[in-house]
Amino acid sequence: MLEGKVKWFNSEKGFGFIEVEGQDDVFVHFSAIQGEGFKTLEEGQAVSFEIVEGNRGPQAANVTKEA
């Protein structure tokens, strides 16, 4: 699992990017966010995740919000 911070997330469109120190930003789709209820992320929020190869390159999977 990697750790990063949410760079930005558009809850209307359901996607955004996660910043990872020393690496390129990683695309995140709302469907990759773990948990119940409305799936969104806040700018600057700490998250842990895995990287998988998507249709358009690397993207986040199994995203969990850090306490």
Rank of each mutant, 00 (worst) to 15 (best):
Q34A: 11
A46L: 13
V28P: 00
E42L: 12
N55Q: 13
D25N: 09
E66M: 15
S11K: 14
F9M: 03
V28F: 13
I33C: 04
G4K: 01
V26H: 03
V52R: 10
Q34T: 14
V6F: 01
F30T: 06
D25R: 04
E21K: 14
E53V: 10
V63N: 01
N62I: 07
G14P: 00
V47Y: 02
G16A: 01
Q34I: 15
I33W: 03
I51Y: 07
Q59F: 08
Q34W: 10
Q34K: 14
F30H: 11
E50S: 08
K5L: 05
Q45K: 06
H29P: 03
F17H: 04
G16W: 02
G37P: 07
G57K: 06
V52G: 07
A67G: 12
I33S: 02
E50P: 01
F38R: 11
T64S: 12
I33L: 09
D24Y: 11
M1R: 14
W8V: 04
F27V: 02
E12F: 12
Q45N: 09
E50Q: 05
E42S: 10
I51F: 06
T64Y: 11
T40F: 12
G57V: 04
H29I: 05
M1Q: 13
V28D: 00
F30P: 02
V20H: 08
N62L: 08
S11M: 11
D24P: 15
N62W: 10
D25A: 06
V6S: 02
F17S: 03
N10E: 06
K65F: 12
A67Y: 13
V6R: 00
F15E: 03
P58V: 11
G4N: 01
K39E: 05
E53H: 11
I51S: 04
N55W: 14
A60C: 04
G14A: 03
V28G: 01
F17N: 02
K39G: 06
A67S: 12
K13Y: 09
V47G: 00
G4L: 01
M1P: 14
I18M: 03
K13E: 05
F17I: 06
E53C: 05
E66D: 14
G44N: 07
F38H: 13
G57M: 05
W8S: 04
K39Q: 13
E19L: 14
F17D: 00
F30K: 09
D25K: 04
G4Y: 01
G14T: 02
V47I: 08
G37N: 07
H29S: 04
T40A: 10
G37D: 10
K7C: 06
R56P: 09
T64Q: 15
E19F: 13
V6Q: 01
K13R: 13
V63F: 00
A60P: 01
A46F: 13
E19Q: 14
F38A: 07
N62C: 04
N62Y: 07
F38P: 11
M1C: 05
H29C: 04
L41F: 03
L41Q: 01
G57Y: 05
A32I: 03
F17C: 04
D24H: 14
K13C: 05
K7I: 07
E12Y: 15
V6I: 10
G22Q: 09
E43L: 14
F27K: 02
D24E: 12
A60Y: 01
N62T: 09
K13Q: 08
G37L: 05
F27Q: 02
E19P: 01
S48A: 12
V52F: 11
A67N: 14
G44R: 08
Q23H: 14
F17G: 02
E21L: 13
E43I: 14
K65C: 04
P58D: 05
E50D: 11
K65Y: 14
G44D: 06
N62M: 11
K13S: 09
A67K: 14
F17K: 05
I51Q: 06
T40V: 11
A32H: 07
S48V: 13
E3H: 15
E12C: 06
A67L: 11
G37A: 08
V28I: 09
G44I: 02
S48K: 15
E36M: 09
L41D: 01
V52T: 10
F9S: 02
E19M: 12
A46C: 05
K39N: 07
D24T: 10
T40G: 08
E66W: 13
H29Y: 05
V52Y: 11
N55I: 13
W8P: 00
N10R: 08
G54N: 08
G37Q: 07
N62F: 10
E3I: 15
Q59K: 08
K7G: 05
T64P: 02
E19A: 14
M1Y: 14
E19N: 09
I18W: 00
L41V: 06
G37R: 05
E36P: 10
V6D: 00
G54R: 08
E3Y: 15
H29R: 04
I33F: 05
F27S: 02
G44T: 05
D25M: 07
L41P: 02
G35E: 11
S31I: 06
K39L: 11
A61T: 12
Q45W: 15
A46P: 13
I51L: 13
N10Y: 07
F17Q: 03
E21G: 11
Q23C: 04
P58Y: 09
N62A: 08
F15V: 08
I33D: 01
E42T: 13
A60S: 05
S48I: 12
S48F: 13
V28R: 00
E43T: 14
S31N: 08
F9Y: 09
E42H: 14
Q23P: 05
K65S: 10
G54P: 03
S48H: 15
K65E: 07
T64I: 11
E12S: 13
I33G: 02
F38V: 08
G57N: 05
Q34N: 14
E12T: 14
V20I: 10
